[in-house]
Nucleic acid binder design. Structure first.
Lengths: 321, 321
DNA sequence: CTCTTTATGCTCTAAATGAGTATAATTAGG
DNA sequence: CCTAATTATACTCATTTAGAGCATAAAGAG
């Protein structure tokens, strides 16, 4: 980077070895259908949709939005940037590859075209992340033992302790509670411990310790983990779940959506209390008896909330003890 | 972007009109000295340090880190990405300019070289953001009247209402409380209302409605606002203030640092309660009587916390009623 | 020795949160 | 028609957390 004596930033950007660079956009597009969180994929569900940044769009975001809307036939209600990273190894040539990843929320229903088959349940990629029906057996049976073994394998005693501590915290062992937000940390630990196929890819195939969970090309599964983590964090303080819901819905449907994203169940009555308290929704006047029991009132999100969206908050009963 | 039928993402990135792009890094480097938050600047305090991304670093982050450390003579304890944006208008040619902005935390003390003069109090750029001594007079006297006038100027009644609502919320009017996190929203409103010089730059100089606050080139002040907002949010749930503190400090010093960042005062006793409760610090054993009254115990951050940093949380009494 | 100043310990109240009980309004099945 | 099952919805209660204030301790200034 430049010295503080250089003339202006912009000039410095052009004069000094300005690198030839190519930019890619990568999208983590999420929908929740039938209480299952899904992600839009390509390449037999092995890759996230992505492509080169095209000149001609006003901004990165607008390019992404246009493309996703063409694919899904749905407006992308919400987009946010995830992370930008640079990679030299990816392409053989001199060029630096810059990838800008985004998180987008939409609804899967009535999506047309070939992309329909592209929706995949995100727990296919992260089976250890779904705790709605209790702790998945893969955790105590396979992952935790192997992770602890990996931790114990370190030569340096400090590293042993450090690894063990990270595993304990990330996977909620001992007296730590499971924290659903640590999706990325967990994936990275599994990667470090060479327990996901991506970690050993291209190297020794022999010791490939395959554990449950669908893989993806390059670092796409890592990006997906980033997106899930971000979304799990975000739903707690910003009303983004709305983007995943149909125009009218019952409170239980809303709750199931939140639970699908968080990968854990919430207390029904408290969930209702919080949602109603915050004035995020209003009754449509109708009721449904689709659900089996007593008919439920249908709700819609309040107009005002949508207008104030950038600043409004949401709370959900997803705290950690 | 590509179709879902294209072969692989990486190939698509190279085959299809892969745009010529140049990448810039922009850094918001923050320190707190004598209870004042400062930002590292260049160009007579009119620009944030930035420069082209250089091939030869492992990652974007490492390039930034090396550069800043060379400049400040201090290790950058903490770096995080802020935002990536693309601009075509900036450079006259065909190239797309991609700027990746970062937030970095360090300590100003004993920084050597010409960059020493580059530290500037961040409230020079955002005088309306410092509420430690009460509501700054610029707000009721200048900004709020002008913002409300701007809101009323809209032709469409819906837009009038919308603008007014945004001003009310962002600036804590009516029964809304001041929310120190909304730094960016406030700057954007002022920009929209053409109350900051950046908004009218290059166009009609006549009606330039100059309000207090130092300006910067291009969109650097906007990026700084993004950094401040991020930091104000972050200190509430992650122990990043530590990076801004000397090795040993009193609880009051810590409190003053938090207050400097948040731009508002906190309840002393409750602050202490929260910090001690969370086991983030430990006593060094020494005391200082530098402060005038009863000598204060000195503290340091706990080693373990630093090790667990990626996952540990912090709470601060900065909630909004 | 007293006033001022900062440090530090403790109490009190209100609000938020987690968890459970009770009742209402349906449908399914006999 | 009656009963069980199922979901919706209204309340209650105990615990925690957060905001605010009071009281005491330990220094320096005059």
């Amino acid at each position: 980077m430049q010295d503080s004596t250089t003339q202006t930033t912009k000039q410095a950007g052009r004069n000094k070895r300005s690198q030839a660079v190519s930019a890619d956009l990568i999208a983590v597009v999420i929908a929740v259908t039938d209480g299952e969180p899904r992600v839009l994929t390509i390449e037999q569900a092995q890759a996230l949709p992505s492509g080169p940044f095209e000149l001609g769009h006003r901004s990165l975001q607008s390019g992404l939005r246009a493309w996703v809307e063409r694919q899904t036939g749905h407006p992308l209600g919400y987009i946010e940037q995830l992370y930008t990273f640079a990679d030299r190894d990816r392409t053989g040539d001199e060029r630096v590859q810059i990838s800008i990843s985004y998180l987008g929320l939409t609804r899967e229903e009535q999506a047309q075209g070939p992309s329909t088959q592209g929706w995949r349940g995100w727990y296919d990629y992260f089976p250890w992340e779904d705790h709605r029906a209790g702790v998945p057996l893969i955790l105590p049976d396979i992952l935790v033992p192997r992770l602890l073994a990996w931790a114990g394998d370190a030569e340096d005693p400090n590293m042993r302790r450090d690894r063990r501590q990270r595993v304990v915290y990330a996977f909620g062992l001992d007296d730590c509670d499971w924290n659903e937000e640590l999706v990325l940390q967990r994936y990275e630990l599994l990667y470090e411990a060479a327990l996901v196929a991506e970690a050993t890819r291209g190297r020794d195939k022999g010791s490939a310790p395959v554990v449950p969970g669908r893989t993806m090309i390059a670092d796409h599964r890592r990006i997906l983990a980033t997106g899930i983590a971000r979304l799990r964090t975000k739903i707690k303080y910003r009303p983004v779940v709305f983007e995943l819901m149909p125009p009218a819905f019952t409170l239980l449907q809303l709750q199931r959506t939140v639970e699908a994203l968080a990968g854990r169940l919430v207390h029904k009555q408290n969930f209702r209390r919080l949602i109603e308290q915050q004035n995020l929704v209003e009754e449509t006047g109708e009721t449904t008896s689709d659900t089996g029991g007593r008919p439920a009132k249908r709700f819609r999100f309040r107009q005002t909330v949508l207008a104030e969206r950038t600043v409004a908050g949401t709370k959900l009963p997803l705290s950690r003890a």
